[in-house]
Design a protein around this nucleic acid. Sequence first.
DNA 1: ACAATAATAATAACAGTTATCGTTTCCTGT
DNA 2: ACAGGAAACGATAACTGTTATTATTATTGT
Lengths: 126, 126
Amino acid sequence: MPALKYSRQRESIKRFLLSRYDHPTADTIYLHVREEFPNISLGTVYRNLSLLTELGEIMKITTDGPDRFDGHVEPHSHFLCRKCHSLLDVHLENEGSIDQEAQKNFPGIIDGHSVLYYGTCPDCSR
Amino acid sequence: MPALKYSRQRESIKRFLLSRYDHPTADTIYLHVREEFPNISLGTVYRNLSLLTELGEIMKITTDGPDRFDGHVEPHSHFLCRKCHSLLDVHLENEGSIDQEAQKNFPGIIDGHSVLYYGTCPDCSR
DNA sequence: ACAATAATAATAACAGTTATCGTTTCCTGT
DNA sequence: ACAGGAAACGATAACTGTTATTATTATTGT
């Protein structure tokens, strides 16, 4: 693995994700960071999102449609609105014990999980 | 919505999924069904997988990489091996109460969920 | 058997993402 | 401060998985 080297673009991507709670897509991130770095490339955004995900500094959320990214890595779950496709945070009381619970009925080694809820978000349900 | 009309190809796809517990991808399904229908098209496979999913007769599992399909629709969760990418079933004791649990801390309407566990499968952990 | 229409096979188009490659930026040692 | 090496960049091509298009075939109701 090559030595990590600072980049202003990566810094900016991470700052943006930390300021947001709506789990933007790579494209949304690209459009935003472009205001600070007008000729950043979409490839740079993807490369840094992968790198930051590997480093554990951000979290990638795979759903139907494009991947979404979260700068807040404390364990929590997500909710996807079937109508407007907004992705919201859900904080479970037992987030920490989910793996052990499943481990009881499973012969392999469980070291993580992701939970995605579906339904209608507050805005769409009125 | 147009009236549903029988097709032998769709029947075959569903039969295959019911016989399997390894959650094959569209491509795997295509390769298999081709033994019975040598000139079935990959598009036909995708179209029928979407249709069967909408009808609730099968279940689509979105992960990193290609979508995978499950002919067994009783509520249950899944485990993805980080090493060999095999996808296995996990049966939780409280599968039915997961939505209500999360509903306590969430202002929208939750009507479903999907849980994906990560780790090392029995085969890979030795 | 016939007409209506859903489903098909073949293939093009598409979305999201990853890879390539020549140039720029960052870092380290002098 | 400067130079050399390597990581990161921007531009763009390539790739993967999936959906859309269209002319033909299969299914269904009369």
